[in-house]
C-alpha cells in the first residue's frame, strides 16, 4: 500500500510538471549542446553596441561539430582573413545597417493579363462614345509589356448637338466611331502603396501606354437623302493608367487614353448635283486631326494565376 501511494504521487508529479512546462511560453533556448544543433544569431539590443574587445563581430555561439555549412562558412572566413592585404578599413556593422525592403507583392514578369474594359469619351461635347472591349498583354519584365486591344463603340449625342441645330440653326458635322484595334507597349515607371482609412494597405502602380492601330469612323449624314461613308483610320494612341492590386490574379485598372487620327468629315455642300454620292463626298471630304480621349476602366485577370519569388526575402 505504501509503495502504491509513492508510485501515484511520483507519477502525478511527473505528469503535472511535464504539462506545466509545455504550456508555458517558450523561453530563450539554451546553448546548443549536441552536434545537430543549428547556430543561432541572437537579436539582442546589446549587440548593437560595438564589441569592447576590438574589431571582431560576435555572431553568436560556436557551431557544433558535424555542421557542414557552418564549417565551410568558418573556413571561408578564416581564408579571407589569411589573404587579407592592404590597409584595413574599419566598417562598423550592426543590425541597424540592415535595411528591410518589402518585396513587391505582385510580380508581372512573364505573365499574361486579360483586361475586359469599358470606356467613355470625355472631350467631345457633341457626341459621347461608349466603348466595350478588351486588352491582352504579355509582360516581358515587371515593367514592360506588349499587348493588343480591341474596342467597339456606341455613340450618344449630347445636349449641344440639339442646341446648335435649334438655337443657331446649324446642323453639326460629326463622325461616330465604330471600332478600333491597336498594338500597345506598356511601361510601368511608378509604383506605390497607400493606406485606406489607416487600416488596409493597397498596392498600386502607374503605367504609360503607347501604341499604333486602326479604326473605323462613319459619317452622320446631315441630310439622310445623301448617303454617308466610312473611313478607315490609322490610330496611334498614348495614355496613362493606374492599376490596383487586389489578388495575385486580379487587378483593377482605370486610365485615360488619347486616340489620335485624321478623320474625314462630310462636306458642307451636298446637293443632287454636288457630292451626291458617297464616293464624291468622301473624295471632297474635309479632313481634321481628332483627339478622342477615352476614360477606361476594367478588371484584369492574370495568367498564370500565381507566381513565385526568385529572390530571397
Amino acid at each position: 500500500m505504501r509503495a502504491f501511494h509513492r508510485s501515484v504521487v511520483v507519477l502525478a508529479a511527473l505528469a503535472i510538471s511535464a504539462g506545466t512546462v509545455v504550456a508555458q511560453p517558450k523561453k530563450a533556448p539554451a546553448p546548443p549542446a549536441g552536434g545537430d544543433a543549428e547556430p543561432e544569431i541572437e537579436i539582442d539590443p546589446a549587440a548593437d553596441a560595438p564589441p569592447a574587445g576590438g574589431d571582431e563581430i560576435d555572431m553568436g555561439a560556436e557551431p557544433g561539430p558535424g555542421d557542414l555549412d557552418a564549417d565551410m562558412a568558418a573556413a571561408d572566413a578564416a581564408n579571407a582573413n589569411a589573404v587579407k592585404a592592404g590597409p584595413a578599413v574599419r566598417t562598423p556593422l550592426s543590425w541597424k545597417d540592415i535595411l528591410v525592403v518589402v518585396r513587391k507583392p505582385f510580380l508581372k514578369a512573364r505573365r499574361t493579363e486579360l483586361l475586359p474594359m469599358v470606356g467613355t469619351s470625355v472631350n467631345d461635347n457633341m457626341v459621347r462614345h461608349y466603348s466595350v472591349g478588351g486588352q491582352l498583354s504579355y509582360y516581358l519584365t515587371d515593367v514592360l509589356a506588349i499587348g493588343v486591344e480591341g474596342q467597339y463603340y456606341r455613340p450618344s449625342f449630347r445636349e449641344p448637338f440639339d442646341l446648335v441645330a435649334r438655337q443657331a440653326r446649324r446642323l453639326p458635322t460629326i463622325n461616330t466611331l465604330k471600332w478600333s484595334a491597336a498594338l500597345n507597349f506598356n511601361y510601368v515607371p511608378v509604383y506605390g502603396k497607400f493606406a485606406v482609412l489607416d487600416k488596409r494597405l493597397i498596392t498600386w502602380e502607374v503605367a504609360f501606354t503607347a501604341g499604333i492601330g486602326a479604326g473605323q469612323s462613319e459619317v452622320e449624314e446631315r441630310d439622310k437623302k445623301f448617303p454617308g461613308f466610312t473611313n478607315l483610320l490609322i490610330m496611334p494612341n498614348v495614355g496613362a493608367s493606374m492599376r490596383f492590386f487586389l489578388a495575385k490574379w486580379l487587378t483593377v485598372q482605370v486610365g485615360i487614353r488619347d486616340y489620335v487620327f485624321l478623320d474625314k468629315f462630310e462636306p458642307t455642300d451636298r446637293s443632287p448635283t454636288m457630292n451626291a454620292t458617297a464616293d464624291e463626298a468622301k473624295s471632297n471630304a474635309d479632313t481634321a486631326l481628332i483627339n478622342n480621349v477615352m476614360f477606361q476602366i476594367g478588371v484584369s485577370f492574370w495568367l498564370p494565376t500565381s507566381f513565385e519569388y526568385t529572390t530571397f526575402r
Binding site: Y191, K193, A195, V196, L201, I202
Partner: peptide, 10 residues
C-alpha cells in the same frame, strides 16, 4: 482624405 501612401517614380 481616406487614402494616403507613397510611390516610387522610376
Amino acid at each position: 482624405t481616406p487614402w494616403y501612401g507613397k510611390l516610387a517614380a522610376f
